[in-house]
Amino acid sequence: MAMSTQVVYGDEKQNRRKVILRQTILYTLLALFAIFVIIPFYWMIMTAIKEEADVFVSPPILWVNPLNWQFSNFALALERAPFARFMYNTVIVSMISTVGTIITTVFAAFAFARLNFVGRDILFMALIATMMIPGEMFVITNFLTVVELGWIREQTFTTALLAMTIPFMTSIFYIFFLRQTFKQIPNELYYAAKVDGTKDLQYLWKIMVPIAMPTIITITILNAMGTWNAYIWPRLVTQREEFRLVSNGLRNAFDDALGVTAYNEQMAAALLVTLPLLFVFLTLKKYIIRGVSRSGIKG
């Protein structure tokens, strides 16, 4: 009896040791991975606040005393290119395209989720199938189309905005995503509203949209983030420097032909572009993760 108790006691100790060892390894691995993830951000920040002379020191300076942080780099970076203008453009473009996208997708998702019409399922399958086709297939013709529409030649800010937003005012993925949410709203709600004499349009805006708000917020964020990161299309369709978006400005302003780059200013600008995104992410993390993990589950 005493023997067996002791054996068990030994077992427990061994087990506890095993558990502690496992936990230590686990947290070490996770911490290492976290460092791997953070390093680029860390290096971006450190470089952005260094004096120019300190950037070109080998081996590099790994930590800058907070008293010596050069916030002037941000001012200098902003002088390099009209970043304020680029950000303004980006915000406008993302607002227009987001509002447009929400309206078109809400209507379309409603039709697919609630209305019964000829060819609904075939059309829906066709839309899903197009999601597989790489965007480069569309770009060529879309470029020709916006030229035809007169949004490129003798470009004004208005036509530049049209060229940057109209082709992206709807999204099959968001229609799909929103339809899934709409479908989860119980039929009874719709029938009850019908009995009460509610019109479809009223039902959509007064009941479905508020219920689906979390999804709509997710779509808004993802769409805005997409615009913030857009590089290729804006570069293709903007004819004047001042119509471009942040990503374009960022890449071109520091591409020094001589190969000597003011890295601290470049990183300061990169940080300026990155910070709003990080801020949005940290405040609205829940919605972003939701959207991403949903897309995975339904995929």
């Binding site: 991975f33 976290a34 993830v37 953070i38 390093i39 680029p40 951000f41 290096w43 971006m44 470089t47 950037v55 070109f56 020191v57 080998s58 590099p60 983030m225 913030w228 990161n229 590089y231 942040v246 990503s247 960022l250 890449r251 520091f254 890295y263 470049q266 990183m267 600008a269 990169a270 940080l271 572009v273 990155t274 995104l277 990080l278 949005v280 992410f281 993390k285 972003i288 993760i289 991403v292």
Partner: peptide, 25 residues
């Protein structure tokens, strides 16, 4: 922390990586 890279601008972070891999600095 692990999700942070999802919300970065490819251009900005690409430039940061280029400097991370800078030969001397």
């Amino acid at each position: 922390i692990f999700f942070l890279p999802y919300v970065t601008n490819a251009i900005a972070i690409g430039m940061a990586f280029a400097f991370l891999f800078n030969r001397n600095f």
